[in-house]
Write a protein that binds this DNA or RNA. Sequence first.
DNA 1: CTGAAAGCGCTTACAG
DNA 2: CTGAAAGCGCTTACAG
Lengths: 344, 344
Amino acid sequence: MSKKKPTILEVAARAGVGLGTVSRVLNNHKSVRPETRARVLKAMEELGYTPNPHARRIAGGRSYTVSVLLPFVATEFYRRLVEGIEGVLLEKRYDLALFPILSQARLRRYLESSTLAFLTDGLILASYDLSEHFEGSRLPTDRPVVLVDAKNPRYDSVYLDNFLGGQLAGEYLARFPGPIFAVKVEEEPDRAFHHTVFAERLAGFREALKAAGRPFPEEHLYTTRLSQEGGRLALRYFLEKASPPLNVFAGADQVALGVLEEAERLGLTVGKEVRVLGFDGHPFTEEVGLSTIAQPVEAMGARAAQLLLERMQGYAGPPRAVRFEPLLIERASTRTSPAVPYLP
Amino acid sequence: MSKKKPTILEVAARAGVGLGTVSRVLNNHKSVRPETRARVLKAMEELGYTPNPHARRIAGGRSYTVSVLLPFVATEFYRRLVEGIEGVLLEKRYDLALFPILSQARLRRYLESSTLAFLTDGLILASYDLSEHFEGSRLPTDRPVVLVDAKNPRYDSVYLDNFLGGQLAGEYLARFPGPIFAVKVEEEPDRAFHHTVFAERLAGFREALKAAGRPFPEEHLYTTRLSQEGGRLALRYFLEKASPPLNVFAGADQVALGVLEEAERLGLTVGKEVRVLGFDGHPFTEEVGLSTIAQPVEAMGARAAQLLLERMQGYAGPPRAVRFEPLLIERASTRTSPAVPYLP
DNA sequence: CTGAAAGCGCTTACAG
DNA sequence: CTGAAAGCGCTTACAG
C-alpha cells in the first residue's frame, strides 16, 4: 500500500522541465543537454521513479521487455543461459520475462492469444525449435525471434557444436587404458518438444572412438534421465560389465557428478580406477575436480540477446547462425592424483 | 507480419455502436442490451479482435493477468497446480503469467522493479513462502497475494495436510507383514527457498508407525532427490537391509515409480514381495497400479485462484487458510494380485 | 536543446 | 441502455 507510483509528470515538475524532456532522457535521446539530463535523473532517483512499461508500450510501441521461452527444467544450464541473456539485456535497459514451457497446448495459447505477458518486443527460444509446431514453420508473431541452443534456417540461431564436443571427449578418453563407457541422457518424455544435443554428443563420441580404433560395444552405453542418481546407477551397471580401470564419458555434468559420487562410495579411486569426463563445464565441476567438455553457456546467451537487440533495432538481413565450440577442461577426475580427495 | 491488430474503434464501427459500448461488453457490464451485445461480439469475432492488455491496464488499472510464482522444477505437481489455477482464471477471462523462480536475486528484482511482466493484478505463490525474504514478512506489492502449497498467517493460503498424509501412509503400511521402509525426498539445495512438505509427510508417517507399535529404525530411511532413479537406488539399499517381503513408503509418486521399476527389474513381485505406496496421486499412478496418498492438486490450485479473484474484487477480510485432506488410494502395488503385471 | 500537443487503445463517469 | 468526452502514463513529430 505504498503511495501511488510517481509519473513522468511529477518528475518533470521536480526537475523543472517539460514532460517531453523526461521522456527523452528515458529513451536516451542524444538531444538532451548533459546538465538537464542530470537534473532529470536526479529527480527520478529522488522520486523513486520507474517508467510504466504498459504506457510505453501503448505510446511508443515498445515495452522494453523480451520473452525467453525455455523448457521447464531446472538445470544449471538454463540458469547460466538466462544469466548470459540478462546481462546484455539489462545493459540496454530491457527486462526479460521467462516462459517455462509446460506443455505444447500452453505454448499455442501463449502465441496465438495476445496475453499481456506475451506482448513483448522480441522472443528468445531456448533448446526447443518450436517453429515446427506452427504452419509455415514460423512462429505466429511479428516480433523478432532468436533461437539459442537450437538451430533453424528461418531464424537467427546460436548453438554449440555438440558433435565436436563428443569428438573431443572420445579422442581424449581413447588415450587412456581400460574399457570406455558412456552415459547418454534421455530425451524428455514429451516427444512434442525434442532436442538433439545429447544424441549429437554421443555421435561425435562414437566417431572419435572409431577413428582411434577403440571398441565401443552397445552394452557400454547406459541411458538415463538427467539426474545425479542416474549417474550412480550407470556406474554400477558399468562395473557389472568390466572391472577397473574404467573410463566414463557422461553426457552431462550432473550425471557425471553421480558417477563420481558412486565411485567414491564404492571406494574406487577417481582419476585412476574410474576416470570420469562430464559435459557442460558448469561451475561446480571445478570444485569437485571434474574434467569436462565446457560450453560457454553464458556467452551463448549473451550472443543471442545481442542478435535479438539488433533485430529489434531494425536489422533485417538474412538469418544468422552463430556456432560456438566446446573446450576440454582436464581436472582430477581423469588424472591420477593421490592428493585430490573428492568431497561431495 | 500480419496486418495490424484491430482496435476497439474498428469493432465499434463494424457493430455500428460507440466505442464505449464495445468496452462495456468487454467488461461484462450488465447494462448492455443482449441484442447489442451479440452484435458487438459478432464484430469482434469477425475482426479477430482481442483487447490490448496494456491499454486496459493503463486506462482501467487492471490488466486481467495474474502472476504465478513457482519453483523452477518441472514436476507433475506443478503442471496439475497450474492447470487448476488456470481453469478458474480463464473462466473469468483472466490470463496468467508464470514466473519460475530461478534464484532469490531474480525474485527480488522482479518484485522491486516494475517489470512489465510483474505489473499484474494479483499474485499466487506456490510452495515457497517467499514473504520471509522481505522486511515485515510482506511482499513488496500492493496487489493481492495468495499462497498455495504453503502457509502464512499474513496471506490467504491453500495447503494440504501433509502430516495427515504421512499418518495415513503409516497406518496403512503397518497392517502388512514385513519390515517397513521409507524414502524421503530431499529439500532443494538452495536453502533460501525451502518448503517442508516432505518433512511433514515423514513426521506423520513416523507417528503412525509408533502408534501402531511398528519399529522404524533410522537405517530404514533413505533420502534422495526427487527422481525416479532415486527410487531405484532406494530399493537396492533397502534390499541390503532386509529380504522380502518389504513395505516401502515413498514420499513422492515419482520416486515410488523408481521403486516399482527396480523391483520389476530384480524380478520381485510388486504387491507381495515389495509393497510400494507413493504420495501425490498423480495421473500416471493409475496406469501403473501404484497405491498412493492422493492430494487434490487441481482443486487446490482452483481454490487459490478463487481466493485471489475475491481479493481482486475487493474482499478485504482477514487472511483465510484453506486446508485440504489427502486420500489413500489402494492399488495393485500394495495388493497381491498375480494378474497385474507392471509395465513401465 | 526543449515545450506543448496529439495520439497510443482502452475505461469510466456523465449526460441523455 | 448508449454516446461523447476525459483521462490513464507515456512517445514522438512539430515548432521554436
